[in-house]
Design a protein around this nucleic acid. Structure first.
Lengths: 196, 196
DNA sequence: TACTATAAATAAGG
DNA sequence: CCTTATTTATAGTA
């Protein structure tokens, strides 16, 4: 989890032995073919789970390695979902501004050639040909936007601060909105799900 | 694996029993705390592995569910990596154009709402598939995306909050430090720029 | 980079 | 949403 706490770990350990393993024999994961899931309902469920998992992985990458990231997903119906750190917009902007330069290592498409995920191997084919691996000059402990920030003009700093603030506000209101909804649903007890 | 084939499955089963388990006793995965990996080399390895894994997950999401996707990752050093289907640029463009339209309510970084009024050119071009039929009956049963939104819930929100907080702290301290220096420089020297 | 022991993600079914 | 059975993803090492 991207969210972790030392506290909860101990609790888990306590709980484990106590837990009753009701071996409701039966189902379980199965290997699936890497092609479009035909059954409509199954596909939806898979989409939902996997999108969530993807975002989580993205978050972890940021937390563990100090990376910035933007993930945008369109469901087959055109619904959009995105995840970003610090924000999708910010990362996208960076990405586009660097579009001209060529310090990129892209995969599965990018500025030209299309390599098709639908063509079997997502692993080797899609993963960038970039092997120009780490020629990183061990700057130890400094994220680029941090070291970079020193050279920025106040104007840029202000822009970033604003971005941060906006994000925070969005976050706050989203939380509020959700909590509100949850409570109202709870209050309506007898009723069904509150339609949105 | 994103790559799979009916053929290789059988092969696997044949191979399995033959494989010699050289139990080189010892290591193995361990749970790690979800915070920045301090050891430089480890962090880089993790970044590399996880980035790869992330792209693969993205690919699978597209293949299995017929989604479009764009993933952009900046290493802490500022190197860019991206994955996209059909193309990162294409997906980003869609994303941005939609952002302009009536701003739907975002969930933090997420926008979860409808869109497809116009001609789904991506339907045909980008995402192969879609047996016209099944794509339509979305009326019956609980709407899958409801489950989706609810699934976001606290866990995801908490994760984001944590990321936000960390970023804010980083930003804040960086800003503070810089401003502090600038002002002190200005105060001490009056007007001239002080070389760093 | 290769490999193993484990932690995680997730396909099915309830 | 849950739970379980497995498949995957990977942290730690050599």
């Amino acid at each position: 989890m991207c969210s972790s706490s030392s506290a909860e770990q101990q609790q888990d350990q306590e709980a484990e032995p106590i837990r009753i393993k009701k071996k409701r024999n039966g189902t379980g994961r199965k290997k699936i073919e890497m092609k479009k899931i035909e059954k409509n309902s199954s596909r939806k469920v898979a989409f939902s789970k996997r999108r969530k998992g993807l975002f989580k992985k993205g978050c972890e990458l940021c937390r563990l390695c100090g990376a910035m990231i933007a993930i945008i997903v369109f469901s087959p119906k055109g619904r959009v979902y995105s995840y970003g750190y610090p924000t999708a917009d910010f990362v996208i902007k960076q990405f586009q501004s660097e579009a001209d330069e060529e310090n990129q290592y892209n995969v599965g498409d990018e500025r030209g050639s299309i390599s098709l995920p639908h063509e079997e191997n997502c692993e080797t084919d899609c993963v960038s040909e970039n092997s120009a691996t780490e020629e990183e000059e061990e700057n130890e402990e400094v994220y680029w936007w941090e070291e970079d920030i020193e050279g920025l003009e106040l104007e840029e700093l202000e822009r970033r601060r604003a971005c941060m603030e906006e994000l925070r506000d969005n976050m706050a209101s989203s939380l509020e909105e959700i909590m509100e909804r949850r409570f109202s649903e709870r209050d309506l007890l007898g009723n069904d799900r509150v339609p949105r």
